[in-house]
Amino acid sequence: MPIQWLDKLIRRARVKSPWLLHFDCGSCNGCDIEVLACLTPVYDVERFGIVNVGNPLHADLLLVTGTVNRRNGRVLTNLYEQMAAPKVVVAIGSCGLSGGIFRTAYNVIGGVDQMIPVDVYVPGCPPRPEAIIDGVFLALDRLSRPAKSSDRPPLKPVAGRSSP
């Protein structure tokens, strides 16, 4: 069937060409430089077709490092909503998962999943580039499966989300 064949081709292309958008959401830079290190010769994610496009309209993959606070949470939600479907989110680092060492600080709301739905969590402080690449591949798994509406719940209102 040509339709099935086309569907298979498209899903393969999605896995082969994930363009990423990186947003530093209140991280200490440790994870950011590891994300950037993934692009450089030793790790070279372009082998897998991964390119840092820096523009939410073009990206398929949102890499978020760091904790959410009251100011950047709005930016994070904006970026997520600007991305065209299909899209996946990878939260990187202990802070991105839960708030990490900063969890009890007064200006920290918590992990990335307080704001947007997260598909893959990569733990570590900071995670090694290998771990980040592995997390990205787990996320790509989701892109290669046929999309189901139950996969992606709508954004739910969370405490702090509406505050500026």
Binding site: I10, A13, R14, K16, S17, W19, G49, A85
Partner: peptide, 13 residues
């Protein structure tokens, strides 16, 4: 790779 990129872009929202 460029073909994959374009096929993927064509199938995006």
């Amino acid at each position: 790779q460029p073909y994959y990129d374009v096929i993927k872009l064509m199938a995006k929202e």
